[in-house]
């Protein structure tokens, strides 16, 4: 039986010899980087007397920010653990959004373009990623089983496959499929090229994840299943894989999120996915930053969705061992 536990250390507030130096460091940092001259500094400028010297403004900014931070920590520390996590997450998200906001963006431009970015870009990105993730998972499963099999030929192929496709840069694989295969007489379109390269590359990485997951299951599980007369396929799908999932899911979730963003690499062969559109749509009116930030937020949102899905699946496969 597994029980949840945390890496434990005394709470920050009970350790003034850590807490106060931390605040001092923040204060010093703000001073050193001339915070009075920053976006926060300009906000602060609104509330201090007109015509203060730059030094005064920086000092005021540093004091206010540090005091706010200290107050925030004191408040957060009084909450239950889960609420602490969510609150801090939200605060950091606000800071990041403020950072984007400070770029003086043209929201009218974003509003004009976002429809196209979503219907063409996001849809293409999702389509490519979803298909690639599916194929990569199948390749990984086959690769892992081949690596663990008693068949030398299967093992040899699987080892070569993971070595080659983990070893070459993804960008190179995309070019080789798109520009190389036509040399052999096969012309491949841009989208299938992207899907093929992503599937092969991520299939190779995930082969290793699946292999490690399968190997983490004790020998006794195989033996018990065999002794009961289960066929090899049933041993794998009913006994071994369901148990390996606890080990396989977290790194696989990583791979899915990573693939979502690596799908942007297929923009080099002219696929109109999110990244491609973000780069090209801003060009006409010199509004690159707007498009980059919008696309970034869309990628981030998609990753968050994947994170949440991963969490649910993890909970499902953990139900037998956590209570």
């Amino acid at each position: 039986m597994h029980y949840h536990d945390n890496v434990d250390y005394p709470p920050l507030l009970s350790r003034p010899n850590v807490f106060f130096p931390l605040l001092a460091a923040v204060f010093a940092g703000l001073w050193w980087f001339n915070a009075g001259d920053s976006a926060i500094g300009r906000l602060v400028a609104g509330i201090i007397p007109e015509g203060a010297s730059p030094a005064t403004q920086t000092l005021a900014t540093a004091v206010i920010v540090t005091a706010f931070l200290a107050f925030n920590i004191v408040v957060v520390m009084r909450l239950p653990l889960r609420q602490q996590v969510w609150l801090v997450w939200g605060e950091l998200a606000v800071v990041i959004l403020l950072f984007f906001y400070s770029f003086d963006l043209s929201f009218a431009f974003i509003q004009r373009k976002i429809g196209f970015l979503l219907t063409q870009g996001l849809v293409t990105t999702l389509y490519i990623s979803a298909v690639s993730i599916t194929i990569a998972t199948i390749l990984a499963l086959m690769g892992a089983i081949a690596k663990l099999s008693s068949n030398g030929i299967a093992q040899g192929i699987a080892h070569f496959y993971t070595s080659l496709f983990r070893g070459l840069p993804l960008l190179m694989q995309i070019y080789m499929i798109y520009l190389g295969l036509p040399q052999l007489g096969y012309v491949v379109d841009a989208v299938p090229t992207g899907i093929a390269a992503l599937s092969l590359c991520y299939g190779a990485y995930m082969t290793e994840i699946f292999r490690a997951g399968i190997e983490s299951i004790p020998k006794g599980q195989w033996e018990a299943a065999r002794a009961l007369g289960l066929r090899p396929g049933a041993v794998m799908t009913r006994i071994i894989l369901p148990q390996s999932m606890r080990v396989i899911i977290p790194p696989t979730g990583n791979q899915f999120i990573s693939m979502l963003k690596d799908s942007s690499l297929v923009s080099v062969v002219g696929v109109w996915e999110l990244m491609y559109l973000a780069r090209t749509q801003g060009q006409t009116e010199f509004r690159h930053v707007e498009m980059m930030i919008t696309a970034s937020l869309i990628y981030w949102l998609m990753s968050i969705v994947l994170e949440l899905i991963q969490k649910r699946i993890e909970t499902h496969f953990n139900k037998a061992v956590t209570r």
């Binding site: 006794g220 599980q221 033996e223 018990a224 369901p242 148990q243």
Partner: peptide, 9 residues
């Protein structure tokens, strides 16, 4: 078996 080998899932 000595180690029971029940299927934990």
């Amino acid at each position: 078996f000595q180690q029971f080998n029940l299927f934990p899932h």
